[in-house]
Simulated scan of single mutants.
Amino acid sequence: MKKTTKFFTGFGLLALATGIFIAADHIDAPASMGTTADIADYFAFEPTMGSDNTVFIVDLQSNVVDGLAYGTFDEDVLTEINIDLDGDLTEDMVIQAIPRDGRMYFFGPITPDQTGLNSQVLVDSPLGDVEISATSAITETTSEGVSLFAGPRQDPFFFDFFRFNEVLAPSPMDNSGFNVPGEDTFDGANTMSIAIEIPNSMIGEATGTNVIGLPVYKTWITTNRKQ
């Protein structure tokens, strides 16, 4: 499979959830934390019960704050959705997203020539592209029924950060519990989001199961920076 000569090296991986003062920061590896390759959230789900489609949503850059200039997608960062279809925890299919000149370009799903931390843009397997949204949401649906979105969205991370600090403060410790309801410290903060809804027939059969026995894809995210 012919590809571009632009090589990428693994930079971020789906990570833990925690919080900092301005916006939710879902800590990645130290080298990527707080950078344009920082992964905040990853969601994979059926849009409706029993649907033949799957939705993948990736949130990057957790420091995009309402009232300030929106962040931008980094043209040197490749976002890759990895899907394991045989249970060996190695990607069998990948979907890629990379921005260029105000648009997000998607490639795949396809079996990669190489697995692990290094990736190349799969230019011979275009999936579609969409204008990167700014003040209003823009979506694009391809002839194959794939829906695409890229742009700023409100951070879904709900956390009463200040009450959390009060409860855990070493002295004096307040053990009266959390407030009900709590306050969302990160209300108004944004992330840079990439969303795709795709027919399962384009990916392959889901071989994993969730806690209630329903079939699910084993999937994870990596971000890769151009070398």
Rank of each mutant, 00 (worst) to 15 (best):
K3G: 03
K3Q: 13
K3E: 03
T5H: 08
K6Q: 06
F7P: 00
F8W: 08
T9H: 10
G10N: 00
G10R: 10
G12K: 01
L13K: 11
L16W: 09
A23D: 12
A29Y: 09
P30L: 12
A31Q: 10
A31I: 14
A31H: 12
M33Q: 12
T35W: 03
T36Q: 05
A40D: 11
Y42H: 03
T48C: 14
S51M: 06
S51A: 12
T54K: 07
N63L: 14
A69R: 09
A69P: 12
F73A: 02
D74K: 13
E75I: 12
E80Q: 10
E80T: 07
I83K: 03
G87Y: 03
L89G: 06
D92L: 05
V94E: 11
I95T: 01
P99W: 05
P99I: 09
R100Q: 15
D101L: 04
G102M: 11
R103A: 11
Y105F: 07
Y105K: 13
F106T: 05
F107C: 10
P109D: 01
I110M: 07
I110H: 13
D113C: 01
D113W: 03
N118S: 13
S119L: 09
S119D: 08
Q120S: 12
Q120E: 09
Q120C: 05
S125N: 11
P126W: 06
D129T: 14
I132Q: 00
I132L: 06
S133I: 02
A137G: 07
T139M: 04
T139H: 00
T141G: 09
V146P: 00
S147K: 10
F149W: 02
R153G: 00
R153T: 11
Q154L: 06
F158M: 13
F161L: 10
R163Q: 10
N165A: 08
P170K: 11
S171P: 05
P172M: 12
D174C: 09
N175C: 09
S176F: 03
G177K: 08
V180M: 04
P181N: 13
G182Q: 12
D184G: 07
D184T: 04
T185W: 11
T185N: 09
G188I: 15
E197P: 04
I198D: 00
P199E: 08
S201T: 15
G204F: 08
G213P: 06
L214F: 04
V216T: 13
K218A: 11
K218W: 00
T219D: 06
Q227K: 13
